[in-house]
């Protein structure tokens, strides 16, 4: 990791101008926690880093929009997200997820944009954000677009973003009546990357489930919705239905073996944690109920 330039633009448009659509050795750096690891190991050898830190102030805000959506600036540190009262009240599952995501020092530095753009399938927030139907706002010299977090990941460490695009904000719809839960399952130590992440969000209470999202991460090459399992939940929330949904989840998940466990074992974890996540979500009060308490 030697001899590269660090550019420090003051505005988003300056930053965009410094990126290069063709050159993979030019990259944005936000918190730098992921990039530093890649540079140290020699996976990434930059010629230019475009630091986003000097534009931080304008892009670290967390706003509540009139429609209840949360708009979170891409440079918001994960710790600020964790602590924000607005996040705790409107999307408590995000704050809960952050508690065991990496460690305090990384959360103090790592940003929402960097977390999403890095596309490591072991990341904890993407499955939760997909379950919550979140989107990212993406900017480039060509203009802006929105991409559902569900569609952001193209594969293992790959996003659909072009080299000269930046995430400018994360938009999280109001959780409303939906109940959500995230389970991080580690197999090597309590504090570790997940072997398996399962996020669920269910709309509706009791047996009247209108929509359910079940998202699996870490065990797959990118976060993936488990649609067959989701469909089964249309039948209600009886124990037998949950068990069938979990079975379907284990069946459909495209699970990979790695240092956290074999594919067969992780499939069992999917079976167990999909049920546990659904139970936790169904048992949890909805956000509005929570706010009223």
């Amino acid at each position: 990791m030697m001899s590269f330039e660090i550019a420090e633009p003051q505005t988003l448009s300056e930053a965009l101008a410094l990126l290069d659509p063709e050159d993979p050795s030019v990259r944005a750096i936000a918190g730098g926690t992921a990039l530093m690891l890649m540079m140290k190991s020699g996976v990434f050898r930059p010629t230019r880093l475009v630091s986003l830190r000097k534009l931080a102030d304008a892009h670290t805000r967390i706003d509540a929009r009139a429609n209840g959506e949360l708009a979170i600036g891409a440079l918001t540190p994960l710790a600020a997200l964790e602590d924000a009262p607005m996040v705790r009240s409107r999307a408590p599952v995000i704050a809960e997820t952050l508690r065991t995501l990496s460690n305090v020092r990384v959360r103090n530095v790592a940003t929402v944009g960097g977390h999403l753009a890095h596309a490591d399938p072991h990341m904890d927030l993407p499955p939760v954000l997909i379950a919550l139907r979140a989107r990212v706002a993406v900017a480039s010299r060509r203009g802006t677009r929105e991409v559902a977090v569900e569609d952001l990941f193209a594969g293992y460490y790959e996003t659909v973003l072009a080299r000269d695009e930046l995430i400018s904000a994360l938009i999280v719809p109001a959780q409303g009546e939906r109940r959500a839960a995230y389970f991080k399952c580690t197999t090597r130590a309590a504090d570790d990357w997940p072997a398996l992440g399962v996020a669920v969000a269910v709309d509706g209470a009791g047996s009247a489930i209108r929509e359910a999202r079940i998202v699996l991460s870490a065990a797959t090459s990118k976060p993936a919705r488990l649609r067959a399992a989701e469909a089964i939940l249309g039948e209600g929330t009886a124990d037998a239905v949950l068990a069938r949904a979990a079975e379907a989840a284990a069946e459909e998940a495209d699970v990979m073996a790695d240092g956290h466990g074999s594919a067969a074992y992780k499939r069992q974890l999917v079976r167990v944690y999909v049920q546990r996540a659904l139970r936790r979500a169904l048992g949890a009060p909805g956000v509005n109920e929570r706010a009223q308490r």
Binding site: I6, I29, T33, R53, V106, V109
Partner: peptide, 13 residues
């Protein structure tokens, strides 16, 4: 005022 890991923190920052 915030704890960081110096090993992952660019000097320039």
């Amino acid at each position: 005022g915030k704890a960081v890991s110096g090993c992952l923190y660019l000097a320039a920052f």
